[in-house]
Write a protein that binds this DNA or RNA. Structure first.
Length: 428
RNA sequence: GUGGCCUUAGCUCAAUGGCAGAGCAUCGGAUUGUGGCUCCGAAGGUUACGGGUUCGACCCCCGUAGGCCACCCCA
């Protein structure tokens, strides 16, 4: 009914929602910093080629979900809103010569991503990711470190029953042979393949592995497994990742059907799910190793690994699991007055208290005292400072709205008294 | 991108094809400067939008938009 509303697939984070997001983002950043990651920020859009080259042009993310920006002139560069953070961060790594920094370069970022797909709960055209990237470390120890970091994030933020799925999808030494074997296998069962899967067979055979079509699920049970066909180096790497994960006490499940949707991944791939929902879409987060990406974007051959965790989905799961959102904090005090018309004094008192670094609100409406106090109570204020005739003697009433008590305070002592009350309240 | 369900006040929901309503929330009042409770009142609607059928449409039909569900895919 309103004339304007938020574009399809986007939403407003009202203060209550925003408080949840703030908590998720600050928890993630603090956690990553504790692990040695430094916050970075890259543009929300890049040359389309950064994503086409990096993510792979035959992926869904690029083929049908890339949020392209209409060029403003013939000679304009083709731009696209970022659908994920890794390509842009790696582009920055190359552009700024980060290979001369102490390796690995560990970076973290939290911000909005954009994908032009059909919205659903937990699936938006603008969504938030908490991202961590370690560039320049071949692993396998850092693989386990980063998976443990992801799992710890969910724990600290209060999501219960998170499962870790891991797999290795090989590297250029072994994956091509595996994909050939996979194609041969599916070609032997062409009659069973649904049309869409048949279409993808030549283009992106790995994707058939995580199809949810019942016929495919049955067929995939007997499909060749990448984990049986890793080259020696990949097999050793994968085994060592598991040793490290076990040593860290990270419970995980090997999921041979786990393939990631972006082409740049090699070797370690992992996803986080809420237990019981693994079969559905709605991964809470995922990531993996991308040893070829830096080179693909014009840098020297450099290994890397990272993850992106979807904050919108974390917020959704927290709500479903009944986790209490952070309580809205009301002002320490509201300045109210017996004379509804005297907004000058109320605003002046509030301004002086704010200058003293106190969180106060002045009631600037011209309504009678009872209404002002009522609003202060609903606002969650701890105190009401009541301005009345005593002001002539330099005094005000300070009413404790929670306790229902009230006392007279000299106007010159007001800031000190309120600051002391706030301090004792927070320590008690 | 495919299929299905849904859309009435800020929110949650009513209304047989015949006067669009309730609760909560908002705002105001209950005689001079003290909140939460109670009582009274006000405001709030192009029934998502556009067509059609009908004497008459929130209600039936078509289209569009948005949300949700299952696909697809991913976070």
């Amino acid at each position: 009914m309103p004339a304007f509303r938020a574009p399809r697939g986007t939403r407003d984070l009202l203060p209550e929602d925003r408080a949840v997001f703030d908590r998720l983002a600050s928890t993630g950043t603090a956690l990553a910093v504790r692990y040695g990651y430094r916050p970075i920020e890259t543009p929300m859009f890049e040359q389309s080629a950064v994503f086409e080259r990096g993510i792979g042009s035959v992926t869904d993310v690029v083929e049908k979900e890339l949020f392209r920006i209409a060029p403003r002139s013939e000679e304009a560069e083709a731009w696209a809103l970022r659908p994920e953070p890794t390509a842009g961060i790696v582009r920055a790594y190359v552009q700024h010569g980060m290979q001369t920094w102490p390796q690995p370069v560990k970076l973290t970022f939290t911000g909005p991503m954009f994908r032009y797909d059909r919205p659903q709960a937990g699936r938006y055209r603008q969504f938030w990711q908490f991202d961590v990237e370690a560039i320049g470390d071949p692993g396998p120890a850092v693989d386990a470190e980063i998976i443990e970091l992801g799992l710890r994030f969910y724990g600290e933020v209060g999501v219960r029953d998170v499962q870790v799925l891991v797999n290795s999808i090989g590297d250029p030494a072994c994956r091509p042979a595996y994909i050939d074997a996979l194609r041969d296998f599916y070609r032997g069962h062409l009659d069973v393949l649904p049309p869409t899967e048949r279409d993808r067979l030549e283009r992106n055979a790995l994707r058939l592995l995580d199809s949810k079509d019942p016929a495919m699920v049955e067929l995939n049970a007997s499909a060749p497994r990448i984990t049986d066909r890793l080259c020696e180096a990949c097999a050793a790497h994968f085994a060592s990742v598991q040793v490290h994960l076990t040593a860290l006490g990270v419970p995980f499940r090997i999921e041979p059907g786990l393939v990631r949707g972006l082409d740049y991944y090699t070797r370690t791939a992992f996803e986080f799910y809420v237990a019981g929902r693994e079969g559905q879409q709605q991964a809470l987060g995922g990531g993996g190793r991308y040893d070829g990406l830096v080179e693909l974007l014009g840098g020297k051959p450099t290994p890397g690994i990272g993850f992106g965790l979807g904050l919108d989905r974390v917020a959704l799961v927290l709500a479903e699991q009944g986790t209490e959102p952070p309580a809205a904090e009301g002002p320490l005090a509201v300045i109210v007055g017996a004379d509804p018309e005297d907004t000058v004094t109320r605003l002046k008192v509030a301004t002086d208290l704010r200058a003293a670094r106190l969180r106060v609100r002045a009631d600037l409406g011209r309504r009678k005292l009872g209404r002002q106090l009522e609003a202060a109570g609903r606002d969650g204020a701890h105190f009401a400072v009541i301005l009345g005739d005593e002001l002539a003697q330099g005094q005000v009433q300070v009413r404790d709205l929670l306790a229902g008590t009230q006392r007279t305070v000299g106007i010159d002592d007001l800031a000190r008294e309120l600051a002391r009350a706030e301090a004792s309240h927070h320590h008690g």
